[in-house]
């Protein structure tokens, strides 16, 4: 397989790492709901979404390991990197909060990821294209489920309306980061490997406006955006998440099933 030549190897690795880390970290967060969600239906849904995301993370991180060329597989990259080596966006590492905040986060992420995978399925990197085409089918379900819950909560009781509204207000500062490819080498986009996420913003805003109208929710006021996840500058929450997620393979490095 030929890798498009315009792209520097490091930027390519870093980009694939982003895709894998977004899926992995959100999967870990969603897994925290297992056995604690408000109803059996939502418990199943969040766990299933987490499982799909772990599958996607495994494919992306496995490929990232090949690009890196240091003999790291997906597990090694997931369990043996420290917090500043993670490239996920800040949105996915945020604590779950209540169910309203979790649904707000899921709606923002899955709507964005759906638009991203649609474009990535046409990447000039055939490996990324085929992973995206496969993952897109799963993400379609995630985005639909999240949108339905935004409507159920927003157009539900006064309490559920307030909770999901607060959830969006909390998450909103992390939205801008999703639509920037910074600080990657621009060649990763011009060569057609990566998606210029800035181009997804109009479709995202339009989907959001439709869902919010149905959910009788006001559009969130834009707070000062927070960025940094793509450079490895994370919130304090990611370290705690990793200490939980990575404990077993670090304490028992040769453990097998």
């Amino acid at each position: 397989m030929t890798i498009p030549t315009l792209t520097s190897k490091d930027a390519h690795f870093d980009y694939v790492l982003r895709l894998g880390d977004d899926a992995l970290i959100l999967a870990q967060r969603l897994g925290e709901w297992c056995g604690h969600a408000p109803a059996l239906e939502t418990d199943l849904s969040l766990a299933n979404i987490a499982l799909d995301l772990i599958g996607q993370a495994t494919m992306f991180l496995g490929y990232a390991g090949e690009l890196e060329g240091k003999g790291n597989d997906a597990d090694k990259l997931a369990f043996h990197r420290d917090v500043n080596q993670f490239r996920n966006c800040l949105l996915v590492e945020q604590p779950n909060g209540d169910f309203g905040r979790t649904i707000a986060r899921q709606y923002i992420f899955s709507t964005w990821q759906y638009l991203l995978y649609q474009q990535l399925a046409r990447s000039t990197d055939p490996r990324l294209a085929e992973i995206a085409a496969k993952a897109l089918k799963e993400t379609t379900y995630h985005a639909e489920l999240a949108a339905e819950w935004v409507v159920r909560l927003g157009d539900g009781t006064a309490e559920s309306h307030e909770r999901v509204k607060d959830g969006f207000e909390w998450c909103w500062r992390f939205v801008d980061e999703l639509f920037s490819v910074q600080p990657l080498d621009p060649s990763i986009v011009t060569s057609g490997v990566a998606v210029d996420t800035a181009t997804l913003r109009a479709a995202f805003d339009s989907a959001l406006a439709t869902t919010f109208a149905e959910a009788t929710l006001p559009l969130p006021k834009f707070p000062r955006p927070v960025l940094g996840g793509r450079k490895g500058h994370h919130s304090e929450h990611l370290g705690h998440l990793l200490s939980d997620m990575q404990f077993l393979p670090r304490a028992y490095p040769d453990a097998v099933w």
Binding site: L51, D52, L53, I54, G55, T58, M59, K134
Partner: peptide, 8 residues
């Protein structure tokens, strides 16, 4: 082929 990416 795999059915779902994360299918155990």
């Amino acid at each position: 082929t795999t059915t779902y990416s994360g299918c155990p």
